[in-house]
């Protein structure tokens, strides 16, 4: 709100203000604002918008007999390929997995975030650090660590054997991928949830209890609706990367359960069908775009 007024030009002496001068001053202010944003704009346009345009162009191109791509004979063939049963299965499997990952993250994170948001500042900060600690290790390393835990002689197999469930191999299954995805995404759910629960006036919870609501009713009618911005933000932050996840399914998943990310990479590198890879990438982005718009529509209003 309060901004130093930018003068249109350096003046020798101050003069009485006029509406024209005021208008010129505000124009100058917005010009300078634009100038400040320019480096980031330029970077985004050059390395994001332009490549995106290239991907879009390729999605309408034709694959030639030699595995190359001809930038001619524009068609929708690549998009038609998405109706293919194999691709459709992969699409649905990825969607399902992303939704499930998001839900599990939400259920696991919500109590944690609530606990954290209602502690004193010291406990709060310690817990925040705990949430961040995994980021100190490389993402790839962490995924390989899960390979050890879930593998043949790993912790999980040993536990399931010990409690009499028999030898269960989790590695290279969809469950393994989901465990890995939930693990990797938890902080992205916890942090927005924490931020939005922390802002809720705790006397509202007391008021709800005073007005005969049980603990669960208070959660359902007061706490959850008021933390909706965090729920939606966290869900998008988990859902979107899970949908296009590549590294975790590659490392923990099996060959039978190809997901969208791996499939797109295969199209570009192995199958050498760039138009299909490009069109899939584009559809994926459209889904994410819709999710984000939904967020700003619902979350934005409640903020």
């Amino acid at each position: 709100m309060t901004m130093v007024t930018v003068r249109p030009e350096e003046q020798e002496a101050a003069a009485a203000a006029t509406p024209e001068y005021e208008k010129a001053a505000s124009r100058a202010a917005s010009r300078r604002g634009l100038l400040l944003a320019l480096p980031a704009y330029a970077y985004l346009v050059l390395f994001f918008a332009v490549p995106l345009g290239i991907v879009m162009i390729y999605s309408f191109a034709t694959r030639n007999r030699f595995g190359g791509t001809d930038l001619s004979g524009w068609n929708l063939e690549a998009y038609r390929k998405l109706g293919d049963p194999i691709v459709r299965d992969i699409l649905f499997r990825s969607l399902w997995l992303a939704i499930l990952t998001t839900l599990i993250c939400l259920v696991v994170s919500y109590p944690f975030a609530y606990f954290m948001a209602t502690r004193g500042p010291v406990v709060r900060n310690v817990m925040l650090i705990f949430v961040m600690i995994p980021f100190w290790t490389n993402f790839l390393v962490r995924n390989y660590a899960w390979r050890v835990l879930l593998g043949n002689d790993g912790l999980f197999t040993n536990i399931s054997e010990a409690i009499g469930l028999g030898e269960r191999e989790l590695l290279f299954t969809t469950s393994a991928v989901m465990i890995g995805l939930v693990y990797g995404s938890l902080p992205f759910m916890v942090l927005p949830l924490y931020a939005s629960i922390e802002r809720i006036d705790l006397s509202l919870i007391e008021a709800s209890r005073d007005l005969y609501a049980s603990g669960f009713q208070t959660l359902r009618r007061i706490l959850f609706p008021l933390s909706m911005p965090g729920v939606i933000a966290g869900s998008i932050l988990v859902f979107v990367p899970s949908l296009g996840a590549y590294v975790t399914p590659e490392i923990l998943g099996g060959a039978k359960t190809t997901l969208l990310g791996s499939y797109i990479v295969t199209q570009f590198l192995t199958a050498r069908n760039w138009p299909v890879g490009a069109s899939l990438s584009f559809v994926l982005m459209a889904v994410m775009l819709v999710a984000t718009v939904v967020y700003f529509r619902t979350g934005g209003r409640n903020l």
């Binding site: 006397s203 509202l204 008021a207 709800s208 209890r209 005073d210 008021l226 409640n302």
Partner: peptide, 20 residues
């Protein structure tokens, strides 16, 4: 007794009206 089991109600200091 928990608050929801008491025949009393409170007018809170900053009213604590549910904003949603």
């Amino acid at each position: 007794l928990p608050p929801n089991k008491r025949p009393v109600n409170t007018v809170f200091q900053d009213y604590a009206l549910f904003p949603h």
